[in-house]
Computed example of a mutant assay.
Amino acid sequence: MLFFTIMLSYQVMAGDFETVIEYFQFAAKQGYTRAQTLLGVMYYYGLGINKDYMKSKVLFNQACDNGSNDGGLNREGF
């Protein structure tokens, strides 16, 4: 997972949100809670993707259901 995180950090710094979103969506579907949380943040703030508060909330709830404290903290804002 460290390689995954480093690679995505590089893509974000390069402004390649399309690639980041693609990888986060794949990882989120696999149940990777960090990807669910970060993709939720991207939807919430509209980072490289259209703002969608409902999708954001669904992703935060999925992350929380899968054991992520970060997902729970983010969903409290709704």
Rank of each mutant, 00 (worst) to 15 (best):
L2Q: 11
F3H: 13
F3Y: 13
F3V: 15
F3M: 07
T5G: 08
T5L: 14
T5I: 15
T5S: 14
M7V: 03
L8T: 04
S9E: 15
Y10G: 02
Y10T: 13
Y10D: 11
Q11S: 03
Q11K: 01
G15R: 04
D16V: 10
D16F: 04
D16I: 09
F17I: 02
I21Q: 03
F24R: 02
F24Q: 04
Q25R: 10
Q25P: 06
A27D: 04
A27T: 09
Y32K: 09
R34Q: 09
R34P: 05
R34G: 01
Q36L: 00
Q36W: 03
Q36A: 02
T37N: 03
L39E: 00
L39K: 08
G40I: 08
G40T: 07
V41Y: 13
V41H: 11
V41C: 11
V41S: 03
V41G: 02
Y44P: 01
G46L: 11
L47Y: 02
G48T: 02
N50D: 15
M54T: 10
M54A: 14
K55S: 13
S56R: 15
L59A: 09
F60E: 06
Q62S: 00
A63G: 03
A63H: 12
C64D: 07
D65T: 00
G67H: 12
S68K: 06
G71A: 07
G72S: 01
G72Y: 06
L73D: 07
L73F: 05
R75A: 08
R75G: 00
R75W: 01
E76I: 04
